[in-house]
Amino acid sequence: MLVLTREKEEAIMIGNQIEVKVLEIKGDRVRLGIIAPPEVPIHRMEVYLAIKKANLEAAESKSEGVDEVVRILKNKEK
């Protein structure tokens, strides 16, 4: 991991298009400003990881499981 020290109002560039700027430092909290092309997805890490985990779980869904659910739903409609 590359480690850089920055002060308030200082920034870093990632490639030619992504700028990350330290806007405010307050105790344990740092506010960052990010300028990036619109197509670059930017997420808070914990939320990103939660969705990744949910996707991994969802990708384990089995056809047989959906069969069962569809059967139950169809019985309810009768």
Binding site: E57, E60, S61, E68
Partner: peptide
């Protein structure tokens, strides 16, 4: 929306 289908428990 993405749906996760778990069998046991359903």
């Amino acid at each position: 929306v993405v749906v996760a289908v778990q069998r046991e428990p359903r």
